[in-house]
């Protein structure tokens, strides 16, 4: 029997009304997903798709118009659920007059931790997120990346079973992003459940066990990356070295992603193209083959395909209205 989901979101709906015109705006249109315990769940979508609304509803910041959210079996916004959850808001805003240690102390107090527990945990987390040197600085002097790290530390203060991170890589440099990825992987090793949203698809593809794509307030795809991404080759990437003065028009005909820099020619042939014939033809022009590799779909390709499809169906629906 499958274990009970760590996060269980069912038919979540949220409708806003504009202040004066009272026009209905459907931010969420029946979002349903379940996150298995001990896994990393990546949540992607374009701006305004409903990612942050979903997360804020999961955290009890927004009351849903319909549907339900359960975390570890407890309905949101129950206190029992929030005791076991760590949350990093999008572009976190904290009291800027506090130091990171004071922020963690305040967070620990809200979880009812003793003074000794708060001090010990804060010291560990400050070092873990790499803010040891900034321990005595007020948050006002923190860069965006440092604030993000402080936010991660406060999200982990209660040693949560479920961690919800809204855009945790936002504002971080490549080193910071890698550290956050490592931190998320470390949480999974400790059997924690991590739910995070991101715009950075390579990050999601690299670490998420499950992915959901949200567009226009509803999920357009969800599953493991392997389930979602087409396994069949989309084309064949070829790179050859060929003299810069040799004409290649007939070689590039029908190819995509064509790029010629100096004596190097790169392009993508169609999946059903006769690669051997193409290579033979290029060799006749004195070309030397550098690389030939099948091109598979990436999460980015899937994302763009799904978003385009959601946009098309959304426009069609709006057209009917």
């Amino acid at each position: 029997m499958d274990p009970a989901p760590a996060i269980d979101v069912r038919d979540l709906r949220k409708t806003y009304r504009t202040p004066f015109a009272r026009k209905k705006v459907e931010a969420l249109r029946g979002v349903t997903f379940a996150v298995e315990p001990g896994t990393i769940y990546g949540f992607v979508g374009p701006n305004g798709a409903g990612k942050t609304t979903t997360i804020r509803t999961m955290m009890g910041l927004i009351r849903p118009t319909g549907g339900s959210v359960k975390i570890l079996g407890h309905a949101i916004p129950s206190r029992a659920a929030r005791f076991k959850v760590g949350f990093l808001p999008e572009s976190p805003y904290f009291y800027d007059y506090l130091t990171v240690a004071e922020l963690l102390d305040l967070t620990g107090r809200l979880f009812g931790l003793s003074h000794a527990e708060r001090t010990k945990r804060a010291d560990e987390l400050i070092d873990r997120v790499g803010l040891g040197r900034a321990r005595a600085q007020s948050l006002k002097k923190f860069s965006k990346g440092m604030l993000q790290r402080a936010g991660l530390a406060q999200a982990l203060m209660n040693d949560p079973e479920v961690v919800v991170l809204d855009e945790p890589m936002s504002g971080l440099d490549p080193i910071g992003r890698k550290e956050v990825r490592d931190l998320i992987l470390e949480l999974r090793e400790k059997k924690k459940t991590v739910f995070f949203s991101s715009h950075i698809l390579t990050d999601i593809e690299a670490i998420a066990d499950h992915v959901a794509i949200i567009a226009r307030g509803s999920l357009s795809a969800q599953g493991t990356p392997a389930e979602l991404i087409q396994k069949s080759a989309l084309g064949v990437d070829v790179t050859v070295r060929i003299a810069a003065d040799v004409a290649v028009d007939d070689l590039t005909a029908g190819a995509t992603h064509v790029r010629r820099t100096g004596d190097e020619l790169s392009l993508t042939l169609a999946a059903d193209a006769d690669v051997d014939a193409w290579l033979a033809k290029s060799r006749e022009r004195g070309a030397r083959v550098i690389a030939v590799a099948p091109r598979h779909e990436t999460l980015e390709d899937l994302f763009l395909r799904r978003i385009a499809s959601a946009d098309a169906s959304g426009e069609a629906t709006e057209g009917r209205v």
């Binding site: 804020r56 955290m59 959850v85 949350f87 976190p92 967070t107 809200l110 009812g112």
Partner: peptide, 14 residues
């Protein structure tokens, strides 16, 4: 307005 409340009311505080 400054959204500092987000990190607070998501904790186990009524």
């Amino acid at each position: 307005q400054k959204r500092t409340v987000h990190a607070i009311v998501s904790k186990p505080i009524a």
